[in-house]
Design a protein around this nucleic acid. Structure first.
Length: 336
DNA sequence: GCGTCCAGGTCTACC
DNA sequence: GGTAGACCTGGACGC
């Protein structure tokens, strides 16, 4: 009887809205644009959401969420810019069913700083941009935007797999079905968001369920395989991958079935240029690279060009262009 | 309404 | 080691 009541209380608690458990502030290095960092061009951006495909950005307020590393506790998040691009200041409210320990607070803030790339000095990138008309324009359009990874390895790997062989609409469909079916729904501040499923949970889902409920097709076995590998706990997390050399990270990631050259470049925390068959033509046109071979063969040439010209800033170059493509296509006469 | 084709990548069998 | 073909699914297109 007691156990039953306790379960009932737990269910009721889980269903009610989360409460504010911690308020704090974050001061990123200027120039920093909160809007351009969390709000991407939904038509072209590879990472067209900030932390989860089920988040809400209205009137300068972002409501989103993630799981605290180590404990995997889901937290809701409300972030609002209270400063300017040159004097940035963010007001942050965390929502949860439980209070967070000091360790969890530190972990949560570390995720947030990383997901905003808040501590990077991007002046060098902007200096480099002056030498390329297309980058100069993108810098002007997206001034202060930061390029940042998703909050955890599993969500990044899942994104890289559903990006393959799929239009933007189809990618979004698969991703939202995964989160809808297996993610954690959080209600707070009269909004509902969904954070990433747990690897442990996804590994237990049958391949057939993933295939049919999430319309993943042949990707179902890759998602399940990746979740199993991550759940085992022996694979380095995103933070640990930063401490491993870029080549080794790539080799490690490509050991996961379904992660090839392109997907490893999407996932790696190191500088990369995840150009694919769709974007390779665009980069050739924008940077005046001669399209001397078939598009698939041009991919490695464009990547070499990006590595040589942009070095540690290649991911910034890639994302600034992809996220500003609508403006750039008009100004530079691209036929998208 | 129905059939066919194709897509922002990766794996595998075959040579 | 290099490469052609298969792979889920859904949208676009032609009839």
């Amino acid at each position: 009887m007691m156990a039953s009541n306790s379960k009932e209380q737990e269910r009721t608690k889980e269903m009610k809205e989360l409460e504010i458990i911690w308020e704090t502030r974050l001061t990123p290095k200027p120039p920093f644009s909160f809007e351009h960092t969390v709000q991407k061009d939904t038509r072209f951006g590879a990472n067209w959401y900030w932390l989860t495909p089920f988040e809400s950005y209205e009137q300068g307020i972002m409501r989103s969420g993630f799981r605290v590393p180590e404990t995997q506790e889901p937290v809701g998040l409300l972030v609002q810019s209270k400063g300017s691009v040159n004097q940035p200041s963010l007001e942050i409210k965390f929502f949860s069913y439980h209070s967070l320990s000091n360790f969890e607070k530190q972990q949560a803030m570390a995720v947030l700083r990383r997901s905003l790339d808040a501590e990077r000095d991007i002046k060098e990138f902007y200096e480099l941009s002056e030498d390329y008309p297309v980058l100069k324009q993108a810098k002007q359009d997206l001034y202060g935007a930061r390029i940042a990874p998703l909050p955890d390895l599993l969500s990044t790997v899942m994104l890289s797999i559903v990006l393959q062989m799929a239009s933007e609409g189809r990618t979004e469909q698969m991703l939202k079905l995964i989160y809808n079916n297996y993610g954690k729904k959080l209600e707070f501040d009269r909004h509902e968001i969904i954070v990433s499923p747990l690897a442990e949970q996804l590994r237990k889902v049958s391949e057939e369920d993933l295939r049919t409920k999430c319309k993943l097709g042949y990707r179902a076995k890759y998602i399940k395989g990746a979740a199993s590998l991550i759940a085992e706990g022996n694979f380095p997390n995103l933070v640990n991958l930063e401490t491993i050399s870029s080549d080794d990270v790539k080799r490690l990631l490509m050991q996961i079935k379904g992660i090839g050259e392109f997907a490893s470049e999407v996932v790696t925390p190191h500088p990369s240029f995840p150009v694919d068959i769709w974007s390779v033509k665009i980069f050739c046109k924008l940077f005046g690279i001669s399209e001397s071979r078939k598009p698939r063969e041009m991919i490695s040439l464009v990547k070499e060009y990006a590595k040589k010209e942009f070095g540690v800033w290649q991911k910034y170059v890639y994302e600034y262009i992809v996220n500003d493509l609508e403006n750039l296509s008009e100004k530079f006469g691209l036929d998208l």
